[in-house]
């Protein structure tokens, strides 16, 4: 699924310059526990989380994830955006809660 479609489906805001509408995500992980994310082995993944701290970006970077969606209207601070910029990870935010966001993406074809 293209990131452009993720943005449309989640009514998401784009929070940094690493976003490219043609970036392809092949899988997604919805989770607030970063150790569970680190146990998740998928390529070109999207992380959806309600957790907002620098470890979210570091976790996504270690897992070579393409983008992070902060759910429930959470807005990361400058430090987090800067870390994501350094890592080349797109940062999005949506007002939708985690369960809803995952459900929408799953129903639209992001099954893995």
């Amino acid at each position: 699924m293209k990131l452009k479609k993720v943005v449309e489906l989640l009514d998401a805001n784009i929070l940094n310059d690493c976003y490219s509408q043609d970036t392809e995500v092949l899988s997604a992980c919805g989770c607030d526990l970063m150790s569970d994310v680190l146990a998740f082995v998928k390529d070109q993944a999207l992380l959806l989380t309600g957790l907002v701290n620098p470890q979210v970006v570091r976790t996504a970077e270690m897992m070579d994830m393409k983008a992070i969606v902060f759910v429930r209207g959470k807005t990361p601070g400058e430090e987090i955006i800067e870390l994501a910029n350094e890592a080349g990870i797109a940062v999005l935010s949506t007002e939708h809660p985690l369960y809803h966001s995952c459900g929408v993406l799953y129903s639209e074809g992001l099954y893995k």
Binding site: L33, S35, D36, L38, A39, T49, L51, N53, T59
Partner: peptide
């Protein structure tokens, strides 16, 4: 609360 302490650290390291 910071997203760790789930008891997956050492198992992940071994994995």
């Amino acid at each position: 609360e910071l997203g760790f302490g789930a008891g997956m650290g050492l198992p992940n390291m071994e994995k």
